[in-house]
Nucleic acid binder design. Structure first.
Length: 571
DNA sequence: CGTTGCAGCGCG
DNA sequence: AAAGCGCGCTGCAACG
């Protein structure tokens, strides 16, 4: 059996795959991907083998970290570097920055769910027999390295490395979990909803509000949970709204409206994050969502399980650090417009972005006269507003920030014409689907009617708004990915805590670790004595991410950073 | 009966 | 107040 002594190969990379007989195989490779040797083991011995090779800090090449990494973490092993073939395949297959992107293959499409995949579905056009998974991995890795060599610059490589490191972070965060105080959560629920009801029953405060709505509408047992039936009840009472949505109801001056809106708020809390949610998703003081890295076409992460990306701000106080531990809470104010300023190299917008409040900077630039105008104008620029106040302000932004506005306007035009747009590092938008192209070609037919033409134009504008936003949201996601990777790197280099209070799982008991990530904010959980150093690491990571994504361009991306025992203090 | 689509609302 | 992007989850209603 191989040992990491002077006579053993010192692999730059190890490809990890399944073997014919259900065992595991590690292929040791040099920096060029040339095979140096192999090691075969039974699954029970895999963790030990990985731990041994990890001492030499190789690049671990796997089909997907989503499957490969959790069992290793459970065995107490953290990997420093990895290459996720599935995630990188998607990037290199769709990117427009390569003349010859990776050929599409059904073997390299991620399954929709986290459940084990039925193999048969994926073997249809497989180039290799399932027995030879390791050969398939080696071949795919070779294709990906070749694709990256053909790239005009290093940006795609940076994206693939960041994407893979993001996947490491995601699995580590699931394993560590977000510390969650059940008693605090229950206190919030009881304060808002009343005592915990018997299963199936409506909480007391919701029942009271429903009764008041009924009195005001002059109707017993209003079908308050059924939008279409509630709408008819509202109409009978003379409240002429077109839907039961919040903003429309808020415009009505009827005594039934206030209790109805309050009911909706409580119902949302009860159904989405009530006692049922607590029982199902919080175990041993930890909320463990599954992060789906690259789950959104723009490169943002999606999640599954417990609605991790939608935890209401009112529940943030339930996010509580372990005894003797602290949180470092950090978020970026107005990340997307700052990223737009930098990626378009718009000096005027970057100057407006200097400091904590970009919108005040936009006012100082003279483009608009109030902060709230600035906010809606900037959001409208990125989302493609055409009507209302926001749409009206667009020409003024174009005049003051021509480069930034030119970038998003061009992205919108490309999308309307059916083209593909890309982020700064080279993640590309999906091409239009068949239905979209059919609608456009039907409308360009001389015999097309006005209805078809209007419909096609409307679909084209929809797509233009999507591609307009794609370049900004996607590049912002790249900044966040680099930020996460830099945080992880710096946290692992922190001096060990002298006497950390016991916390977390076995892997993370020793010190600071990322515990939560949501688009532009992170939560680090750390022993109290590491809190200052961890906060500095998070700050330094942001500076490093900015320098890597926008080399040579001066852009301010400031953090709102604080150390606290819970996540609710300034919510 | 189970599945699918939609409305509504939470997050960025 | 402003309605323009991206998600996930819930419950209801319509559908097969």
């Amino acid at each position: 059996m191989n040992r990491t002594d002077a006579t053993s190969p010192r692999p730059a990379a190890v490809v990890l795959g399944r073997h014919t007989d259900g065992g595991c195989v590690l292929v040791l490779c040099d920096g060029a991907g040339e095979e140096l040797g192999r090691e075969v083991c039974v699954p029970d011995d895999l963790a030990a083998a990985v731990a041994r090779w990890e001492r030499t800090s190789p690049l671990w090449v796997v089909r997907t970290l989503r499957d490969a990494y959790p069992p290793l973490l459970a065995a107490g092993i953290r990997l420093r570097r990895a290459h996720d073939l599935l995630l990188c395949h998607a990037i290199l297959r769709d990117t427009a920055s390569l003349a010859e992107p990776l050929p599409a293959s059904r073997r390299w499409i991620r399954a929709a769910s986290a459940e084990p995949r039925p193999q048969a579905l994926f073997e249809v056009d497989a180039g290799a027999a399932p027995d030879d998974e390791i050969d398939e991995l080696l071949a795919e890795w070779a294709r990906q390295r070749a694709a990256l060599r053909r790239a005009p610059d290093a940006r795609l490589d940076l994206l693939c490395r960041a994407e893979s490191t993001g996947a490491l972070v995601a699995e580590e965060m699931t394993a560590a979990g977000l510390p969650w105080d059940v008693a605090v959560h229950e206190g919030i629920l009881e304060g808002a909803l009343g005592p915990r009801p018997l299963t199936g029953a409506r909480p007391a405060k919701m029942a009271q509000l429903a009764a008041r709505v009924g009195e005001q509408l002059g109707e017993r047992d209003v079908p308050i949970d059924s939008p279409p039936r509630l709408l008819r009840s509202l109409h009978r009472a003379g409240i002429l709204v077109e839907s039961t949505s919040r903003w429309e109801l808020a415009e009505q001056e009827h005594p039934a409206v206030a209790p109805l809106l309050e009911y909706k708020k409580l119902a949302r809390l009860h159904t989405a994050n009530g006692w049922t949610w607590l029982r199902e998703w919080v175990r041993d003081g930890r909320f463990r969502p599954i992060y789906l890295t690259g789950g959104v076409v723009t490169g943002r992460w999606a999640s599954s399980g417990g609605g991790a990306l939608q935890i209401p701000r009112s529940l943030r106080p339930a996010v509580r650090a372990d005894a003797g531990w602290r949180f470092v809470l950090a978020d970026v104010a107005q990340l997307e417009p700052r990223v737009l300023a930098a990626m378009s190299q718009d000096r005027a917008m970057a100057d407006a972005a200097r400091g904590a409040d970009l919108y005040e900077g936009v006012v100082r630039s003279g483009a608009v006269s109030t902060r709230s105008e600035a906010k809606y104008a900037v959001l409208g620029a990125m989302y493609g507003a055409t009507t209302g106040e926001s749409g009206r302000l667009m020409p003024r932004l174009r005049k003051v920030f021509p480069r930034a506005m030119g970038l998003v306007d061009r992205a919108a035009r490309t999308g309307e014409e059916g083209g593909v747009v890309s982020t700064l590092l080279g993640r590309s938008s999906p091409p239009p689907d068949g239905a979209w192209r059919d609608a456009q070609s039907r409308a360009s037919d001389p015999a097309a009617g006005g209805v078809e033409e209007r419909r096609a134009r409307s679909r084209a504008r929809d797509r233009g708004r999507f591609t307009r936003n794609f370049v900004v949201q996607g590049t912002a996601a790249e900044w966040s990915l680099l930020w996460l990777a830099e945080i992880r790197h710096r946290l692992s280099a922190l001096p060990a805590a002298v006497s950390p209070a016991p916390a977390s799982g076995p892997v993370f008991a020793g010190g600071a670790h990322l515990a939560f990530f949501l688009h532009d904010e992170v939560i680090v959980h750390c022993p109290a004595e590491q809190a200052d150093a961890a906060a500095e690491a998070v700050q330094a990571a942001a500076v490093a991410a900015t320098a890597r994504l926008f080399p040579g361009f001066d852009i301010d991306i400031p953090l709102d950073l604080r150390i606290a025992d819970d996540a609710g203090k300034d919510a």
